[in-house]
Design a protein around this nucleic acid. Structure first.
Length: 592
DNA sequence: TAAGGACGCCAC
DNA sequence: AAACGTGGCGTCCTTA
């Protein structure tokens, strides 16, 4: 059973109100319209609740709408959670790209334009759905007037178009799974945004004070940084040095005999390391610079301003962007949600009587590669918890150069990223000998990309084609310079497609993993009424749950079962494991 | 003065 | 040591 929700094609409400044009809910049974009703937009939550409560199997309803971000927040604010949806916008994006590659065999003609570019001609960053400066970020945006997108009847035609595209595709089962998972991702993203990551302001403030000193006046540096800045100026012999300015700092460093080409941490450390007899002296010289950089980063990225802007009532409400990365990975908008540095993770605390269950999937990408390529040897290497150690063991047995963990890791990451030089590239022949099927897969993806071709993930997310300028530049081999540029561009796109198939499929696994966790959390607990434990954070291959202590054991079991279930969902009974590191902790910093 | 690139560092 | 994939973001600095 599908229920399509969207603006009514009728221009005015039942009482003739044009200021509040109505919305429409249409029930479809096997694609046929069985009922329809119009209602004022403001009653959306009430209508959805009534349908859910009036249904014997509300979990079997698949709600269909243009954009989860437009609708679901107000349902969550009203305490309504839905089991299944179809997000036409998210699905359209996947289908459009798939259909753009003739080799994919997906035929799709959109019936309604749901692309982001409609509102955002720049077309780069999706518009934030709330203004971070407004308190409404943390409240239901129910009252905000919304732009009127395609009407309900158009959405029904769009749903039909999408379903046709799926069933006509070479792999309908996989593509359907991808679209369902992506839609469910839309739900999960909004639920996690609504729930928020428990963030203890007091602990964060204490941490800042310990390292930076008391909160400074607006416009001036924290005390500890100010004295360090002055110290650095004295040491380098440049009074009035502003270490915040890379140019300034580089000049001062060079003037003081520090021969570096940039002010990067690694450049400075390398300079010190090659000091021969003067290593210690050099380290002493750059130490305050490095310390200043560290504090500067903490202050600017996760300091008091960040706390004020992003943490409300001890929760950090990260705004996720589903499929925000070309590969299908999620992005986050605002607050740097996917780059929470280790230094502040101690502020992430379970609330009293609760625990954080931190589940981290081990070496997902090489395991994905093993499953996709059917490489038995790589699957065997991944039987234990540590796949890289598994490779090292095989390497030792067979007398390969891949005989320690570090070498194995560098080599495999290099194969997936497209390393062309150094230790990593040197290991490629050994890697190829041990894992021919896996290496073959990434090499083929790279070759396709170098020619400007499109590649696809396991479930069928397709990489975008390079633009015309790219093809023109790659064709241009008139001069030595042009030829070099052509090769650079070509190789670069090859590295992109090489990584796309693995990173993208890993993202699909993660999406299914979260979906399975969600399903189990909803179904678990006494009488199957659902646990109180909630997913509160996600980043690529890691999930954080927050819930009552007494549910911790069950939550631990759920994340593990869900990981295995996700593997089966994608790859059937392929002999590839997806082990996790799971920690039940009071503080995020205790995990890993 | 606003926009946008460069820089540098954070995450997986 | 970094190289080599995908991103966000705060700041400085140049450009229109």
């Amino acid at each position: 059973m599908h229920i399509v929700l969207g603006p009514s094609p009728e221009p005015r409400g039942p009482d003739g109100d044009t200021a509040q044009p109505p919305w429409r809910a249409v029930s479809l049974d096997a694609g046929r319209e069985v009922s329809a009703r119009d209602f004022p937009r403001g009653q959306l939550a009430a209508v959805v609740r009534a349908v859910q409560e009036g249904s014997e199997r509300p979990d079997r309803i698949r709600w269909v709408w243009a954009d989860t971000r437009e609708v679901y927040p107000e349902l969550l604010a009203a305490g309504i959670e839905l089991a299944r949806v179809w997000d036409l916008r998210l699905c359209q994006r996947i289908l459009r790209t798939a259909a753009s590659a003739s080799s994919r065999g997906v035929e799709y003609a959109p019936a309604a334009d749901l692309s982001e570019e409609r509102e955002e001609p720049a077309g780069r960053v999706p518009p934030p759905r709330v203004d971070p400066r407004q308190a409404s970020l943390f409240e239901a945006p129910a009252a905000q007037p919304q732009p009127r997108g395609p009407a309900c009847d158009q959405l029904i035609r769009e749903l039909e178009a999408q379903r046709r595209a799926v069933s006509s595709s070479p792999e309908p089962h996989r593509l359907n799974l991808l679209l369902a998972a992506e839609s469910q991702g839309g739900l999960i993203a909004e639920e996690m945004h609504h729930e928020g990551l428990p963030w203890n302001r007091g602990i964060h403030e204490r941490l800042l004070e310990e390292r930076l000193g008391p909160r400074p006046e607006e416009g001036s540096r924290p005390a500890r940084m100010q004295s360090l800045a002055e110290h650095v100026g004295r040491v380098l012999g440049s009074e009035r040095l502003n270490p915040d300015s890379p140019q300034d700092l580089l000049r001062a460093l060079n003037a003081a005999g520090v021969r570096v080409g940039s002010t990067r941490k690694w450049d400075l450390m390398a300079w010190a390391a090659e000091g021969g007899a003067h290593v210690e002296e050099r380290r002493e010289l750059i130490r305050p610079v490095l310390e200043y950089k560290q504090l500067y980063r903490l202050w600017t990225a996760n300091g008091w301003h960040w706390l004020d802007e992003w943490v409300r009532e001890d929760r950090f409400h990260a705004a996720y962007v589903v499929g925000g990365v070309v590969t299908g990975r999620w992005a986050a908008h605002g607050g740097g949600a996917m780059q929470i540095p280790r230094t502040v993770r101690d502020a992430v605390r379970a609330e009293p009587g609760h625990v954080l269950t931190v589940a981290d999937a081990s070496q997902v990408e090489p395991r994905i590669l093993a499953a996709m390529s059917g490489d038995r040897a790589l699957a065997v290497a991944g039987r234990d918890h540590d796949l890289y150690l598994g490779i090292a063991e095989i390497g030792q047995r067979t007398g390969s150069a891949l005989k320690d963990r570090q070498a194995a890791k560098i080599a495999l990451l290099g194969a997936m990223y497209g390393a062309t030089s150094g230790d990593s590239a040197a290991m490629m022949p050994h890697l190829r000998r041990l894992f021919p099927a896996a290496i073959e897969l990434v090499e083929r993806a790279a070759e396709a990309g170098e020619r400007g071709g499109q590649v696809a993930t396991w479930l069928g997310r397709t990489s975008p084609a390079p633009d015309e300028a790219w093809f023109a530049a790659v064709r241009d081999v008139g001069t030595a310079q042009a030829e070099s540029r052509s090769r650079t561009l070509s190789r670069s796109h090859g590295r992109f497609t090489r990584n796309f198939v693995v990173q993208g499929t890993a993202a699909e696994w993660a999406l299914c993993w979260m979906g399975e966790i969600r399903r189990r959390l909803r179904a678990g607990g006494p009488g199957g009424s659902g646990l109180r434990t909630r997913m509160v954070f996600f980043v690529h291959d890691e999930v954080v749950l927050h819930g009552p202590e007494e549910e911790a054991e069950e939550a631990h079991g759920i994340v593990g079962e869900a990981a295995a279930a996700a593997g089966r969902l994608l790859f059937g009974e392929a002999p590839v494991d997806f082990p996790l590191t799971v920690a039940a902790v009071g503080s995020y910093a205790e995990a890993k």
